[in-house]
């Protein structure tokens, strides 16, 4: 039984989470271009936007959108993995106007460009520090996605995302990286 709301939207990975453990019911990985249709589908199903944030990982910048419903207890986390170089993602402000500030804030903190945002100027950071992104991690402190979250109970998944959560196959390279990290 998959996530009915997002039927018709191309998802990369749908996983059921344990709300008692994570506070989320669904974790859905999407391709960047699928975020606007997904938001529209959620909007049509009367979901409301909670917040947008980004995580800096070695696999790239992970943008997380939290949506939840009022009439029943369900929180959906939409996750979009962006490359670390020139991260860009379509803006969902056309669907949820409330995303404007969240997206501006995410641009401030992580430098992610939201394409199609009507007014992507600094929100919380001073205007003169446009290029300072305080929540980008130092190389040593950065972790892989598999080190900071569980995949959950996977319903459907593409290989690409599954690989993110699989224990590191190439032990030599990855072990060196994690060791280095733990020493730091």
């Amino acid at each position: 039984m998959g996530l009915k709301v997002l039927q018709g939207v191309e998802t990369l990975c749908v996983a059921r989470c344990d709300p008692a453990k994570t506070g989320q019911h669904w974790s859905v990985f999407l391709a960047p271009q699928a975020i606007v249709p997904a938001a529209a589908a959620l909007s049509a199903a009367q979901y409301s936007l909670e917040d947008i944030l980004a995580l800096d990982t070695t696999d790239g910048l992970l943008v997380v959108y939290h949506f939840n419903a009022w009439r029943f207890d369900e929180r959906i986390a939409l996750k979009v993995l962006l490359p670390r170089e020139d991260p860009a993602i379509p803006s969902i402000t056309s669907v949820f106007q409330g995303a404007q500030w969240h997206e501006r804030e995410t641009r401030d903190f992580h430098g992610i460009v939201f394409e199609g945002h009507p007014n992507l100027i600094p929100l919380l950071m001073p205007a003169e520090d446009v290029d300072v992104h305080p929540l980008l991690k130092a190389d040593k402190a950065r972790r892989a996605i598999r080190d900071i979250m569980d995949a959950g109970e996977i319903v459907s998944c593409t290989g690409e995302i599954a690989a993110l959560f699989a224990p590191p196959a190439d032990t030599s390279a990855d072990a060196a990286r994690t060791d280095g990290g733990s020493k730091a």
Binding site: K21, T22, G23, Q24, E50, D51, L53, V64, H66, R75, A77, D147, I148, M149, D150
Partner: peptide, 18 residues
């Protein structure tokens, strides 16, 4: 390791920590 979202009802509305 893991992620957790917890929200409570504050005086102004939904106070959430992720």
């Amino acid at each position: 390791k893991g992620e957790a979202y917890f929200a409570v009802e504050g005086a102004r509305g939904k106070v959430g920590v992720y």
